[in-house]
Nucleic acid binder design. Structure first.
Lengths: 336, 336
DNA sequence: CTGAAAGCGCTTACAG
DNA sequence: CTGAAAGCGCTTACAG
């Protein structure tokens, strides 16, 4: 099958010029005669010549590639990965493509496939790490890597020694609180993991409680029971919460998957949404729009997040923008 | 920031051997003294040395990388990509990783970013194309590419000149029919695009109608009206269908996104699911399990599909396995 | 504006 | 078992 690929020497011969001229012409270097350039381009086209990226990258010492690592839960089915990360992956792909860069993706879950040497091996110019913070072993591995000099930026929780970026969670929490208050809700609850390595959850809760405090309201804080995934945790959390606090009329869930579970739990308890209980999630995942009623949520600007992550990863300036916050907006739909 | 990366010569010096020995020791070539090998490994570790993949690939003429192209709808938000493709992407990543290969991903939607030269440029050893068949321009581009010698395999519809693989759609349709019949349903309908370039839809319908014919039943075939996405089309299709055929008691939708829309449409029409109308989708996407009631669906073995696609792409045997069918199973959940 | 040549960092056939 | 050397296919400083 594999037919011998033509090299720049073949193109040179066909165009009747030297190999160096072929290289210059094809790269668009200045100072190449227009007529020569055209002849080279024609010869390349005729031969189906494409520059060898390994040879090129080796010389240039740059691969124009970004490596994207997505950390998964061990043993997790790929289709069960939080859709937020798939959406972020898609936006990162768009951002890299807009720069003419390639995207190398790697889903990692256990020591069997932990890898952080994409930049060290020359395969990528920069690396981005996203995914669940529930995988402690993975983050320990990447902490170690960062400390030993394998550089990258990441999305979400991590503090030092990571270079991170995340949503404006505090503001998201405040927006949720104000939305509930404006709708006349007074018996509020926050459902989310407490003291999770996912600092983002705490930030959402803190923004929520701070805004409510200004109205003299203290929400119930409900930690979801352990469960196989966020959705299952949400179902259980709603049941527990309503059993203990039957008067609750509004719930802010720390993530959409959790919120979708809460929605299901509320239905199981015979509560109407939003009539009896209003509900707001966080993330803006597609599945929220498919729920009935559609989930009201705090939606981070995921394209902005992707663009900022790529820029931050590529800027070799010690990641001065570490700590950048991505804006969020309240998407008012059916549940609140 | 960028500190000079050590080369195999640096390792050689530190280990007190020649550079060729370093290369052999690190690659695990036979005939290297165990003690020498250990000394080289230690020196490499101490220096934080990682083999340069461009130099290595250039010599080896192989990159141990698979390129995965996902075709999107023009102008489509990345978070709106059918989750089935994200799940397939995840499984393909797992399959490539299991072979020690890297995965290069590229989302393409318009002439601005059409590219099929990943193998020609040496960036990848093989290429896989998945994604929506609704993007005609994209498939025209890839047809052209295939004809001109840029080889790849794809998922889904395409016939010649493509090397393709898809679900056992015909059998899926039969399973849906039998499931409905066994439950006593007799007024059946199929909702799906007709004569779409997505041949898979026709196959699902044909399996469905063939199995029903054996029971002397002819289902109503409903083509969904045009719409911004499959979900919206499903909502509208359900309304039209029920208005015209109020007695329908079971619907087989050509895909899960369509089915989720149908579910919504049935609710809008005041029909209870599954009591009044039973519903089955196709794809096994996660969002189906979050619906209320959870969507019964035909679930292709996506890990098997991914593994087969990778194997097929990598096998340089003229893709003799073109036309492979991936097994599907009926996942009975709440809607049927 | 163009060519001859060096060199990017590896792998491996060839000698020893 | 190990070393010296050629060569993978480019890019670009150096001459002209």
């Amino acid at each position: 099958m594999k037919t011998l690929r033509p090299t720049s020497f073949d193109v040179a011969e066909r165009a009747g010029v030297s190999q160096s001229t072929v290289s210059r012409a094809l790269r668009g270097s200045p100072g190449v005669n227009a007529e020569t350039r055209a002849r080279v381009a024609a010869a390349a086209r005729e031969l189906g010549y494409v520059v060898d990226r390994h040879a090129s990258s080796l010389r240039l010492k740059s691969s124009e590639t970004i490596a994207l690592v997505t950390i998964c839960r061990p043993g997790e089915d790929r289709s069960a990965i939080n859709p937020f990360y798939f959406a972020l992956l898609g936006s990162i792909a768009a951002a890299t493509s807009a720069r003419g860069f390639n995207l190398l993706v790697s889903f990692q879950e256990s020591a069997a496939n932990f890898r952080a040497d994409f930049v060290a091996s020359g395969l990528a110019d920069a690396m981005i790490v996203i995914g669940t913070t529930s995988n402690r072993a993975a983050w320990d591995y990447f902490r170690e890597a960062q400390v030993s000099g394998l550089d990258f930026v990441c999305w979400g929780s991590p503090g030092a020694p990571f270079h991170w970026m995340r949503s404006d969670n505090e503001r998201g929490g405040r927006l949720a609180a104000e939305h509930f208050i404006a709708a006349g809700r007074r018996h509020l609850a926050f459902v989310g993991p407490q003291r999770s390595p996912q600092r983002q959850f705490d930030e959402r809760r803190d923004g929520f409680t701070a805004a409510l405090a200004a109205h003299g309201i203290a929400p119930v804080i409900a930690e979801p029971p352990a469960g196989p995934d966020r959705h299952a945790q949400g179902v259980a959390a709603a049941r527990d919460l309503l059993a203990r606090h039957p008067g609750i009329d509004a719930i802010f869930a720390a993530s959409d998957m959790l919120a979708l579970g809460v929605l299901q739990g509320l239905r199981d308890m015979g509560r109407r949404v939003p009539d009896d209980v209003a509900l707001i999630g966080f993330d803006g995942i597609r599945a929220g729009t498919l729920a009935d009623p559609a989930l009201t949520t705090l939606e981070p600007d995921i394209d902005a997040a992707a663009e900022a992550l790529v820029a931050m990863a590529l800027e070799d300036d010690g990641h001065t923008r570490s700590g950048t916050r991505i804006p969020v907006r309240l998407a008012a739909r059916g549940t609140a």
